[in-house]
Design a protein around this nucleic acid. Structure first.
Lengths: 245, 245
DNA sequence: GCAAAAGTGTTCGGCGTACACCCATGA
DNA sequence: TCATGGGTGTACGCCGAACACTTTTGC
């Protein structure tokens, strides 16, 4: 471990991405090579690192996100701190930590952040460790206590997306109402009535219709929209609410 | 600092109490004696301590709450982690930390918890440092970054009290509807219409009328009620909602 | 009898919900 | 012409909001 690293505190980022079909999370491959195949393994983990000395938590999260994806200016939000003394005590975790020169007995507190990106903007190959997008509904057997962190991160996202306009962070700048609806459906794991959804979306001033349509689709091209943060701020009466079902 | 203490991680508890009139927070006196009166000072801080080695965050928070108030089995909830590298760098903070033998240059991450108690149940004198209940609306100039922690804790409480039945943690077991209403009013800093409030409260099955009335009041005694967690769990359709105004 | 808080009903408007068919485009 | 999603309107019920007077008790 680098000497300007704080060995007691780490950040784990739950990086959510939406590909217009499902909600994904960006995972890194954790591969341990060993001559004894009963010891070698390959599984997956969230994106995480220790913070540096004198680095704020928010700065560390942004740095880690940048180092993994090459992206800056990304929505990032802290959601929970995990500090169980045995959180790095699974068998594989111990083997892994030893293999990279760390003492599994040292208690590490990790701070969970979730971030929202549009799946297409990420160069998955940016990271030296193999990174890939996985459907959040199919993820299992993550490293360390990352299952739990992902679960809590998803809960935080669900809570927040119902009361603040963060859905747009997962979409490209121009999007269709069907894409927005699908996003809410996969994040909240519900079905939404199309007419009711559109009525509600169109009532809000800050979802702005553009004089532009979808291209290169094999059906009637849809109207494109943008989210206007300016209009949102100017008109909000602290009552953003997105509760269906 | 004790040798089984983790010097990098602390817990700060925002202990809320309701006295039927206002929302209070429990603060400890921070008094520095010094022969030079320009150095000596006395101000206030939240209740906080470092965690111990191998102690979970939740356990540490419960321990600190117990050591300060003598209470166990209290509602406690983690709400945010604070890690700005300069968070202990105010002038008084540095003087204070040196006076108790700690290095102000060491970065400490603190995890914020809020807890809810009925003001009357706390023996304020339990703690060796002078502890007192202060109206949250009047608190100012707290030690370290505790202003910020209190603010965020209050936001977390406000958010949660609208969607989960935690208000009852701040009340005695038997309470009147006016007391419950007043609680929501002071926590959310709003006025609520009495008839609408009562209508809503009485619709819920889990606020149960007792065959008992208030005593020793100089007006018409009010009906007493209890919160039934059992009924709440059995009947909730994930739709607790307490949104007035 | 007076002060102080308890207790009580109705009306209105808006919003969430359920529900089915025609339209425009590319292949 | 066909497949695919785009796009549209109405009716109903519930809930939140506004609003004022009578009742019970202790002093």
């Amino acid at each position: 471990m680098n000497e300007d690293t704080n060995p007691h505190i780490s950040i784990d980022c739950v990086i959510f991405g939406f590909d217009f079909e499902k909600l994904n999370v960006l995972l890194l491959e954790r591969r341990l090579e060993h001559e004894d195949p009963s010891i070698a393994f390959c599984d997956q983990s969230l994106v995480g690192q220790h913070i540096k000395l004198k680095e704020s938590l928010d700065d560390a999260a942004a740095r880690i996100l940048f180092e993994t994806t090459g992206l800056t200016n990304i929505y990032l939000e802290q959601f929970y701190a995990f500090g169980a003394p045995d959180r790095l005590n699974k068998e594989r975790a111990k083997i892994w930590l030893k293999s990279i020169g760390r003492d599994p007995a040292v208690q590490v507190i990790t701070i969970g952040y979730f971030s929202l990106v549009n799946t297409n903007t990420v160069q998955v190959s940016y990271n030296p460790r193999h990174a890939s997008w996985c459907d959040v509904k199919k993820v299992e057997n993550l490293a360390f206590d990352h299952d739990q962190i992902l679960k809590k991160g998803l809960e935080a996202l669900r809570l927040k997306i119902k009361s603040e306009p963060i859905a747009f962070e997962l979409l490209p700048q121009k999007f269709t109402l069907s894409q927005l609806q699908k996003l809410y459906e996969v994040v909240l794991d519900i079905n939404i009535d199309k007419r009711n959804f559109r009525k509600k979306a169109l009532q809000s001033d800050y979802i702005v219709a553009l004089s532009e349509k979808q291209k290169d689709v094999l059906h009637k091209p849809a109207q494109l929209f943008m989210f206007s943060r300016e209009i949102y701020k100017a008109t909000k009466k602290e009552d953003f609410s997105f509760n269906f079902k």
